[in-house]
Design a protein around this nucleic acid. Structure first.
Length: 846
RNA sequence: GGGAGCGUGGCGGAAUUGGCAGACGCAGCGGACUUAAAAUCCGCCUCUUCGGAAUGUGGGUUCGAGUCCCACCGCUCCUACCA
């Protein structure tokens, strides 16, 4: 018997697999396809435990799927553009590509040491011109379809990264990458009109049965559809209309003031020449300067000033004062709101602070005011003695012809008021989304250049398709502060339309544009005439199992869904959604449950673990730690335990085929009936465990799958070492059964510990081919059933006895046996009811 | 403030549609083997006044609840003045 030596056998098998193209995609064509994909990594440096967990899950699923008879696509690549490479280049006075490709080489070597079965021929690297040219091509196609827009508006600016950010990349007012406070700036930027797809992105979440609910919920919240109405107010003394969006048109009678965002574009015009002008403009300026971090803090104190102007409430022609206040968001709705302090907590707080009227127009029926106001013919403006606004559903009062109707969101009262507004031409139903267009331009070098040219004659002109890719210049000195905009060789160009002197667009695209379609490129990675061939993409897509971190619940997953839908509308794809099943893995934390970080000094290096225990043990330990979607507390003791288990199972396999050095286990002459009975029990366990492992792996419950294999190991070991020796099951008495169990164990372990299994497959089991090309073990549910089963006998729900009955025993027989077993506890009382649950228990109600 | 989720031994975690709570493992304890240690093998391992009690707390539905319903407590994640 060989000893288990991971450090020798793992590299040896990795070389064999590489030499034989073991992991290459085999497109048999007769088999069903399975596309298993893990989110591609950013090449930040060495791999960490998060990579190990993410990619181990994917590798187990890919290997299992191959054995189950699928053609499997399981590729890997790198999300290689981004700021860290640029920062490293500045620090080391070198080029971002150097740092990036060095890290890719390091990570790829680690992945190979982990035994991940990627088809390396399909490697996609996002900063490779052969890849990014097609990102530019897609950009041009989006442009043709009217999905690209350049516009000036307030944007998020990260001063530390010196670039703008998309809304999705601002987390609590801070940059997603460097955590700096984000500022607002008015800039002209490039946008993808993702809002054109807002409704479909929301609706199609229903198609995603294989996604975790919380991810769908997060996307739905982010898209934020809200049904309401636009209501037109007329600025007093003019014909100008200021429109507001509201979901509570039913409360229009309670509108006692009107509020504009500080950024409201017509504000300076509105206050021009008024005594309030100076104060208003100063206030607006100050409000704009408040940082996003401060804005993000909940329950901020609200501030505002009166503008000196009034608007006319369209429902009752009342004059209401116009304020400007910092609690109104400029880019949602119209940047103006009607304030109803009675029905909205924010308006309520503002009204209290500035002593504005709070008109009660909606009440619960048990409110003491109800009787009084419900009768009131004339309108009463009251400052009610409430502590907070009445945001719940209630009955409308003092609301003209609408008095008495039920008010609230989507209420009959709201319906009636909107109908009135529509009939009188003062408003209409509409839907607002929280989702904003995706700001994709970045003022950075290390990204995909936006293929556009600014011509003084022709304006903004797309780069012609045949001129792609627009290549990043390699001779750039970032450390000296050079940028694409100052790099004359790059920026100076001629206009493709008129041939005159022009300037190239020097912004690059958000790195999330690269990751929004890479999964399509894997289906056809070497295509030189298109990003991918439709037939290949349609053959492999959608991804059957996608695996990655929850941190992409909105960002990457939303953008990829958007890209897929646009490419579908271009006729390139024939499906609606890119990822059928999504597994969001939980974080790997240290043994105390804390995030691993360099500053805390608690980072566990996968390479150290591989060096000590081997990759197989690291893989198995990761899988055994818990369900993939939960947080995992990394514990080296667990890894050591798994390493011992692999050793133990290794010996059991050799024992089963009679290759262990200890040959004194049994005496064939003395083989008794007992040995046969034990062999049958072992066979039963083999079938039960194969059934359980198969079901568990299919549900991604890798921890319980491994636990079931441990159970099989335990029973097998017990039968092999049973005393007296003549009762043992072994290669002599058990014959073919022992060999079957040995092969079954090795095959069940193959997706989890690929090197260990391959070695045993060859050395212990004497096979020439690869274990990874074997079909997954079959099992017979009939053979997994025991002849006799133990049932619990409960009296009033408490277990009082256990009985053994034949597995196919009739209910009457079971009842009789159960009653006999607990006759003492019943003390002669007649049971009122007996419930028999076959195979589980009997409950006697006394 | 809004949304989602989670609370099970010393620890990680098990428990198909409600059906014997604690599978499997870690740590710990005891034993065998050994001159000894490591490794390996075997056993014990929620509490208990031995009646029982126990899945965060209190209630409910049910023959039966970790699982379903209601309220509360605690924790985590997401989001944030979205009108």
């Amino acid at each position: 018997m060989k000893l288990y030596t991971p450090h020798e056998l793992e590299p040896r098998w990795q070389r064999v697999w590489a030499d034989t193209d073991q992991d290459a995609v085999r497109e048999d064509g007769s088999k069903p396809k399975k596309y298993v994909l893990e989110m591609f990594p950013y090449p930040s440096g060495d791999i960490h435990m998060g990579h190990v967990s993410n990619y181990t899950y994917g590798d187990v699923i890919a290997r299992f799927s191959r054995m189950k008879g699928f053609d499997v696509l399981h590729p890997m690549g790198w999300d290689a553009f981004g700021l860290p490479a640029e920062n490293a280049a500045i620090k080391h006075k070198s080029h971002p590509a150097k740092w990036t490709y060095a890290n890719i080489a390091t990570q790829q070597a680690s992945f190979q040491r982990m035994g991940f079965s990627y088809d390396w021929d399909r490697k996609v690297v996002a900063c490779d011109p052969e890849y990014y040219r097609w990102g530019q091509w897609i950009f041009l196609k989006f442009w043709e379809r009217g999905l690209v827009e350049r516009r000036n508006s307030p944007v998020n600016w990260c001063p530390s990264c010196a670039t703008v950010l998309a809304n999705e990349q601002v987390i609590e007012g801070r940059c997603w990458r460097c955590d700096s406070e984000v500022e607002k700036r008015d800039l002209t930027q490039w946008y993808f009109k993702i809002t054109d797809y807002a409704q479909e992105l929301l609706d199609d979440l229903d198609q995603l049965q294989g996604w975790p609910d919380r991810v769908k919920q997060q996307q739905a919240n982010w898209i934020g559809r809200s049904e309401g109405a636009n209501v037109d107010f007329v600025l007093e003394g003019t014909d100008e209309v200021i429109t507001v969006f509201t979901t509570r048109a039913d409360t229009l009678f309670g509108c006692s003031f009107f509020v504009l965002a500080p950024e409201y574009k017509d504000l300076p015009k509105m206050v021009a020449g008024l005594p309030q002008e100076k104060e208003v403009l100063e206030f607006a300026e100050a409000a704009k300067k408040v940082s996003a971090v401060e804005r993000a803090q909940g329950n901020r104190e609200k501030h505002g000033v009166f503008t000196g102007r009034y608007v006319i409430n369209p429902i009752n022609n009342e004059k209401v004062p116009v304020w400007v206040a910092d609690y109104v968001v400029a880019d949602y709705g119209t940047g103006a709101v009607m304030a109803v302090p009675c029905g909205d907590q924010r308006d309520f707080e503002f009204a209290r602070k500035y002593d504005l009227p709070i008109i009660p127009i909606i009440l619960t029926d048990d409110d003491p005011l109800f009787e009084k106001l419900n009768d009131e013919k004339s309108r009463v403006v009251t400052t009610v003695d409430w502590e907070c606004a009445m945001e719940a559903e209630g009955t409308l009062v003092q609301s003209g012809e609408f008095t008495g109707l039920v008010g609230g969101k989507h209420s009959p009262g709201e319906d009636a008021v909107v109908k009135f507004l529509e009939d009188s031409g003062r408003g209409h139903r509409t839907v607002e989304f929280r989702l904003r267009d995706w700001l994709i331009s970045r003022q950075r070098y290390w990204g995909n250049p936006i293929p556009a040219i600014h011509c003084p004659e022709c304006g903004v002109v797309p780069v012609p398709e045949e001129d792609l890719p627009v290549r990043l210049p390699e001779d750039i000195d970032l450390a000296a502060g050079e940028t694409l905009a100052t790099h004359e060789g790059f920026a100076k160009c001629t206009c493709p339309k008129c041939g005159g002197e022009a300037r190239r667009e020097t912004d690059t695209m958000d790195t999330f544009t690269c990751s929004s379609w890479y999964y399509l490129r894997y289906t056809d990675p070497h295509n030189e005439t298109a990003p991918f061939a439709s037939d290949k993409a349609n053959r492999w897509m959608p991804v059957d199992q996608y695996i990655g971190g929850i941190e992409h619940a909105i960002l990457h997953l939303l953008y990829s869904r958007f890209f897929t839908k646009v490419l579908r509308d271009m006729g390139l794809l024939d499906f609606d959604e890119p990822f059928t099943n999504l597994l969001c893995q939980g974080m790997v934390l240290d043994s105390k449950g804390e995030v691993m970080s360099k500053s805390k000094g608690n980072v566990v290096s996968p390479e150290d673990m591989i060096a000590e225990y081997g990759a197989d043990a690291v893989r198995a330990a990761m899988l055994f730690m818990g369900p993939p979607d939960k947080e995992k507390l990394w514990n080296e003791d667990g890894l050591a335990g798994i390493y011992k288990f692999l050793n133990r199972l290794w010996r059991i396999v050799y024992d089963l085929v009679g290759k262990a050095e200890d040959k004194t286990l049994y005496d064939p002459e003395a083989a008794a009936d007992e040995a046969h009975a034990n062999a049958m029990a072992m066979k039963r366990e083999r079938h039960r465990v194969v059934g359980k492992v198969t079901a568990d792996v299919e549900r991604n419950n890798f921890n319980t799958a491994l636990a079931a294999i441990m159970e099989l190991a335990n029973t097998t070991a017990a039968f092999l070492r049973l005393k007296p020796a003549e009762h043992r099951v072994n290669c002599e008495t058990g014959g073919p059964l022992c060999r079957d169990v040995a092969e079954t164990i090795v095959k069940l372990m193959a997706p989890i510990v690929p090197h260990w299994s391959e070695e045993l497959w060859h050395d212990a089991l004497d096979h020439e081919d690869s274990v990874h090309d074997q079909p997954w073990p079959e099992f017979d549910p009939e053979l997994a059933k025991a002849d006799e089963v133990e049932l619990a006998v409960q009296v009033n729900g408490k277990v009082k006895a256990k009985i053994m009955v034949a597995a196919d025993a009739e209910e009457d027989a079971i009842r009789e046996a159960a009653l006999a077993a607990v006759s003492n506890a019943l003390t002669g009382k007649e049971p009122r009811k007996v419930i028999v649950v076959k195979g589980r228990l009997v409950n006697i109600v006394a």
